[in-house]
Design a protein around this nucleic acid. Structure first.
Lengths: 209, 209, 209, 209
DNA sequence: CATGAATGAGAGTTCATTCAT
DNA sequence: AATGAATGAACTCTCATTCAT
């Protein structure tokens, strides 16, 4: 009956929050933000409705937290990927491979990438535009700069980099979808990723070089 | 003083239904199915809430109608595009050009293509799976078959057609996004479409031919 | 194109009103006052919703009219039955026989007799109490007086006439239910009525006479 | 500060449910199923509308629960009454006395007996017919069998037992009405019940025995 | 920290009634 | 006299959020 020490409390706190987030993500992926009910989250996290509110002011607060985490995660990945000083084509290859691999390992991220542009404005309200812009800058910005560099160096087709970026990212998303289906046997994964990357790069490299 | 003729009534009905559908699509694109309120639809269609229920049993009935129309529309487009007996590469070119052009003309279709796989199960309930399957078969099936033909003929890379399909469609969606942004001046549209198609095809054609 | 004559109009008027009433009664018997929708009445009467309102100010107005008619009808029956100057037992016999027979011929009247005490207050609002009282006086009053006479004459049990009335009427209603079931073959009807009447009278006649 | 124990919660739940049921019955008796509004129930039960939905899925669910309880109650009464091994006339006497007494003590049951055949199909939907049949079997079945026995033994008139049953039950209902009016002084109650029973039995016993 | 009963604003739906034709 | 499209008040039901314990 002795009160819990603050370390214990802190530990419980973190565990609970993680449980809530995991549950929120799970429900969110199935039903979207509006379709996610606080009761569902609590149930899936194995706790009472009230406790969710103990840790998060309200539904949007919870989702802001979840989205911020996911965005942060994505940001970390990307920067760790494209900031190296490899050669352009190599970079693009690494970049694509990274997303493809993580789609296989964390299939929910694919869905997240697909929905985030539509959900951020709703979840973040006024600040939505800013958050979205920052996210996009972080997610697409580096890719953008690499593409621009590649175009300048004559290694990529001399087209509008925004257009190349859009098609490249779209194709990559298509590949990610395929990789995330959960039906890719490990021994084929490498091959599939290579194939996707081949398609993507063959589409944009400048053959007249 | 005499009552309206049935032609007049029929005309009114059609107009009203069209107004409701237009309003529903507009709100849907902004807020999704769950976020769309019947009141908003009525307001945007300039009528009382009750009138929406006069024409549609309930919200899901309305959305089923809207989705069915959109699916039908998409189906028509596709079949009119890929069933011709051109040569494979030509077909793929026509196919892509068609989607790109219609993305520019009907920007909402892009969003629809993106959301439909997630919304169909919700809107159609039990029958969702069947409807979705039928839609996908109609939407991707023809593309699939053309790709298989191309692979057989050695004109496309000898890869898993499902993978090619996924990346091709993803890239095309990326291009459609770009085309639908509403910021493409008409004089650049042709050029943009050609560029997108170039990227898409260069990615998948078999250069060792 | 010549306007209808007023006689024609009057004829149409009466026909329409009758159609509405018939439809209203039919729906009412199935769903009760609150469960009856004006649209159902119109549909069953084969006319547009609006026309019902042309003839009746509103739903309650229609029902007041319907109820008044039914009450009137019942009143007429009763008075024609009990006002004769037969001997008491004879009168009660005739009275019962009359209701039993009409239950067989117009099964809906049974249901009406059962529901009317509960529905009158709702349909007639403030005046409900008065209407109900008047109805009861008309329906039960004569029976009441006959019973009182019978008691005075020593032909019926010397009990509270209200009690006898209640039980007699209840038993008669039970018999009416049986007669109205629609499964009574004509050749058995007479016999059944006699049996019911025997039970009713044996219950209340004074055997010590 | 510690959360309520599950016993406390269970107690709260039971109390709340009982309050809701009591309120529902009260409103139901005044307005019928269709006329009963969930808001009225909540108000009469002194709680927010939402709480009613916390305990019952929807209006019909609540009414199914209420009806099931009332039916159960009625069933218990009846079986406890007629299953004894008294002599036939005695049984019928006990049976009638039981209903008359309980009509006086729980006046609402009379109204319930009167309305239940009409309301069950509405409340139970598809299953209405089955529920109604089961209810009638339980309510009338035992009486029926006693009557058949009495007829066989020559103690009751040699008539169709269904007919006797109908008239007997009707007459009893009439007596119950009288008893439930709330205006029966306790000192007269016994006398009234005896009178009713006399009428009922004199109607059906076989005097030629 | 934890529970789940309780609340009420607001969305979905129905239906009596009106109105232009 | 007749039609059926149109309206909106009122009801049913959901769910984010609060609160007593």
């Amino acid at each position: 009956m002795s009160p819990r020490s603050s370390e214990q409390n802190e530990k419980i706190r973190e565990e609970r929050i993680q449980q809530i987030i995991d549950a929120a993500i799970a429900v969110y992926l199935e039903k979207g933000v509006r379709g996610t009910e606080m009761g569902d989250i609590a149930k899936r996290a194995n706790m009472a409705r009230g406790l969710v509110y103990y840790y998060f002011k309200d539904k949007m607060d919870l989702f802001r937290f979840v989205f911020t985490r996911l965005i942060e995660e994505a940001k970390t990945y990307i920067s760790s990927t494209l900031l190296s000083d490899e050669e352009v084509i190599s970079k693009l290859r690494t970049y694509a491979r990274f997303y493809l691999r993580s789609s296989q390992l964390k299939p929910h991220m694919v869905q997240f990438y697909r929905n985030i542009p539509a959900d951020i404005p709703f979840v973040f309200g006024d600040k939505g535009e800013a958050v979205l812009k920052e996210y996009v800058d972080n997610a697409t910005g580096p890719l953008h700069r690499v593409l621009e560099q590649g175009i300048r160096e004559g290694k990529l087709k001399p087209l509008d980099p925004r257009l190349i970026s859009a098609v490249y990212w779209g194709g990559l998303m298509g590949g990610m979808n395929a990789m995330s289906s959960g039906q890719v046997p490990e021994e084929q994964a490498e091959r599939m990723m290579d194939d996707v990357i081949d398609i993507l790069l063959d589409g944009i490299v400048n053959k007249k070089g």
